[in-house]
Amino acid sequence: MKILLVGEYSRLHNSLKEGLVALGHEVTIIASGDGFKNYDVDIDISSKLKNVRLFSFLNKIFTRLFKLNFIAVENAYRFKKQLPKLKNYDVVQLINEDALHINPKQQIRLLKQLKTQNKKLFLLCCGDDYITIKYYLQNTIKYSILTPYLEDKSLKGKYDYSLKYLSDSYKKLHDFIIKNSYGTIATDIDYHLPMQSHQHYLGLIPNPINIDSINYHSLSTKGKIVIFHGINKLSKIKKGNIYFEKALTIIKSKHPDKVTILSSENVPYKTYINTYNSAHIILDQVFGFDQGYNALEAMAKGKVVFTGAEKEWLDYYNIEANTIAINALPDVDYLAQKLEWLILNPNQIETISKNARAFVVKNHDYKTIAKQYVQTWKNA
């Protein structure tokens, strides 16, 4: 098959491509690289002007005052320039409803042309979109990325990116994609829950992880326990990083001789994954039911990850709590207690490390996941 993957947020499409190529398919990724994360792409449509500090500053002012985003305009221009080459693909898959990061009205026009010159169009649900945000706003589940906003409406400005999907223009974009695609695929439990009652939903296919390129390293717990906390400033509130920061303060004061704490903020993907190589424990996110891509890669390396590991996830994979990953909750004392439990019982770190790697190999192997995608695309 000839496959076009549009957009990249978390290296999901890169790993999927690697699995598909291993199966003999021809795959192209067209994307912007997702800002500072700088993911690999085959066709780069990222803005070049955004790297000019003065222009980037002026663009923020124009966007705020006049709703005119010159970086988005440039992204649109770069994608449109590539459109004549993006033909005769058997499958086109969008990473998100806003895969191109441009004005919805213009995005519809470009996607309409993309669709007419290719065969099947599919959509991934692996981040914010109309259905997911609408579902989270109903506040019917234990928590979500919107929980901080639902508890404190003064945070609305921090949620502009998420809430934009409920605007009329993005609702039209959503409707267009649903009407013109063969269906939507969710990548984990956090997106499966909002999607499962919708007719166009094709089911959950777990995140693909290239286990052949990620080496497992057994963890020695003879010295200090190393804890790593990586922060993306844009999603800090949605991930619940503040709970981790406060829990780490408690741990530092109680066990200064037993732990080393590492942290990073807004670093490129390749820098990020190397920063935590020496860590035993990774603090990922609080407001999740399942693991995102970064957590799974860390688990594949054998790290003990504090992340989404809720009952729905346990039931889906038929596993026991705190044997594969530590379920992170928006509770500072709870997080501190779990960290202390691991620090004082390093044998648990070694056990969970082995279990985490085994879990990823069994449930997220990139070649097996690629086969699931191919089967879903063919059957749709």
Rank of each mutant, 00 (worst) to 15 (best):
E350W: 00
N318V: 08
K153V: 12
V52E: 10
H229R: 07
L4D: 08
I45S: 09
G230P: 15
E97L: 09
K17P: 05
N294S: 15
F244A: 00
K50S: 14
I95D: 13
L58G: 04
E265F: 08
D168W: 05
S181C: 06
G19L: 05
R64D: 08
I324C: 03
G127C: 12
N347E: 14
I352A: 04
K172Q: 13
I261Q: 12
V361R: 05
D98E: 15
F70C: 06
I227Q: 09
P148G: 13
P208D: 03
Q285T: 11
E340I: 01
P84N: 11
V305M: 07
I237D: 02
D212H: 09
D175M: 01
L146W: 08
I29K: 11
I352K: 08
K246I: 04
H13I: 02
A99H: 11
K120A: 13
S144T: 15
R64G: 03
A309T: 01
L262G: 11
T249G: 15
L202K: 09
P84Y: 10
K311C: 00
I71N: 12
V304L: 05
Q117D: 13
E320L: 06
D40I: 03
S32A: 12
V73P: 00
L121R: 13
Y191L: 03
I349T: 07
L173A: 02
K303C: 03
N118V: 12
G203F: 01
V374Y: 09
S220D: 15
K158Y: 06
L173G: 03
C125H: 14
V374R: 03
V332C: 07
S218W: 00
D212T: 11
I43C: 04
N118D: 14
N266F: 09
I133S: 13
T249A: 15
N241M: 07
I145W: 11
I29T: 10
K37I: 00
E18Y: 03
L204Q: 08
V374W: 07
S162L: 02
M299R: 06
L166S: 05
A298V: 07
Y89A: 08
Y149H: 08
N215E: 10
I231R: 15
N180M: 01
K164Q: 14
E74T: 11
I178N: 05
I131L: 14
G33Y: 12
Q117L: 09
S197R: 04
I214Q: 06
G183I: 02
Y317R: 02
V305H: 09
L283G: 00
D190N: 13
T184D: 01
F289L: 13
P206H: 04
Y317C: 01
S169K: 13
L65G: 00
I133E: 13
I352E: 07
K120W: 06
K85Q: 13
L58P: 10
K172G: 00
S169P: 02
N322R: 05
K233C: 06
A76M: 09
K87T: 15
K80T: 11
S15D: 15
N38P: 01
M299V: 04
S167H: 03
L296K: 10
Q82P: 02
Y269M: 02
L68I: 14
Y77L: 12
S181Q: 03
G35Y: 06
K224M: 04
G230H: 12
I189Y: 02
E340W: 03
G230W: 04
F287N: 08
N210K: 06
L193T: 08
H364T: 06
L248G: 09
Y201D: 04
N14W: 06
F359T: 06
N210Q: 04
K134P: 00
S278K: 15
